[in-house]
Amino acid sequence: MVFVLAILLLLPIVLLALWVLKVPSSPVEIRGRHILISGGSSGIGLELAKIAAAQGARKVTLLARNVERLKEARDAVAAAVSGSSDTEVGFVSADVLDRAGLRRAMAEAGDVDVLVCSHGISIPCAFEDARDEDLDTVVGINFMGTMNVVKAALPGMVRDGGVYPRSIAIFSSQAAQAGIYGFACYSGAKVALVKFAESLKQELFLRKIQISVIYPPDTDTPGLREENKFKPEITKILSESSSAMVAIDVARKAMDGIRAGRFNVSCNFDGHLLAILCTGMSPHMSVCYSLAEIVFLPVTRIISLFIQYGWYRTIRAWLIKHKKCV
């Protein structure tokens, strides 16, 4: 009885403290805005473009390297909203590692209201087997490429954006929240994006630019299908514990998070558990979500211990079976 009374007395104090400590955030409007999506020619990026157009974006610009695929994607977005939207759908071609090319592409596209960095690549393998050029590619495209896109778009975004805030959304991964065998380089690059975003949030929150980090799980896209062709067997076994989402569902979750101005955007139940477990120094932007983090952190930690135990047992058994132990 005393314990219950103590909880009832403390709860209002905790809620008040969380409300006072909350980092300011605002909803992000899509209707009538210019949305630019890197990696927009396929997968989640393409589905996000369709959603943005359906929600009344003034202009949707797709950014990728392959012009033919960009044309096909542009036509797919236009067809998806044909007759129901006046959205202008266009594209710009640039390599995310080419800073000069990105600056030209942004100048061609015009000032951006909502920037979505959904491009990425994974080349799974045991780290000791990774080729130097693959390490450069994974870190370059995922981390440096994202920084380059943001850097190129930012000058136009920090100008007066009117009544509604602008937004930068960065696609990380659940592999950044829980390292997995075969993803050492990929996970490292995606973790770096989270800290990049946390720093950007501090730099830009008074300039009416919201920051969101999206944590998709395995998603059925052309990239995942290509990745599965050479994924290590252990990685495949560990990945079987959770099913892949479809791109449109991830895109919907991502867009909901962007519009709400949330910093951490999870896409499924596992993602919410990982978000609580890995909250760290992420900005506190929701009283309810932060209360859930405080209450459920011990529980998620216990769950994670059992999951990690299972992973290490699986890895040990596979390595012993294939005589790969020292």
Rank of each mutant, 00 (worst) to 15 (best):
F3L: 06
L5C: 14
L11Y: 05
P12E: 08
V20N: 15
P24N: 09
P27D: 01
R31M: 08
R33P: 14
H34R: 10
H34D: 06
H34W: 03
I37H: 03
S38V: 01
G40I: 05
G40C: 08
S42L: 04
G45P: 02
G45Y: 01
E47W: 07
A57Y: 02
A57K: 12
R58I: 06
T61N: 10
A64F: 09
E68C: 10
R69D: 14
R74D: 11
A76W: 02
A78N: 03
A79E: 12
A80G: 12
G83C: 04
S84A: 15
S84P: 13
D86V: 01
D86W: 00
E88Q: 14
F91K: 02
V96Y: 12
L97R: 13
L97A: 12
D98G: 13
G101V: 00
D111S: 06
V112M: 14
L115R: 00
V116C: 06
V116A: 05
A126N: 13
E128S: 15
D129S: 09
R131P: 08
R131I: 04
T137C: 15
V139Y: 06
M144L: 15
G145A: 02
N148H: 11
A152W: 00
R159F: 06
R159V: 11
V163G: 03
P165W: 02
R166E: 01
S167W: 07
S167K: 11
F171T: 15
F171R: 04
Q174K: 06
Q177V: 12
Q177K: 10
I180Q: 13
Y181G: 05
F183E: 10
A189G: 09
K195S: 12
A197L: 04
K208T: 08
Q210P: 03
I214K: 04
D218H: 04
T219F: 01
T219C: 04
P222D: 15
G223A: 02
L224Q: 04
L224R: 09
N228H: 12
F230Y: 15
P232D: 06
K236L: 10
K236E: 13
E240V: 00
V246S: 07
V246Y: 05
A251Q: 02
R252E: 11
M255P: 07
D256P: 01
D256Y: 05
R259Y: 00
A260W: 01
S266P: 14
C267M: 09
C267I: 01
D270P: 01
D270N: 13
G271E: 00
M281N: 15
H284N: 09
H284C: 11
M285L: 15
A292T: 07
A292M: 15
V295C: 03
T300P: 06
I303G: 05
Y309C: 14
A317S: 07
K324C: 08
V326I: 07
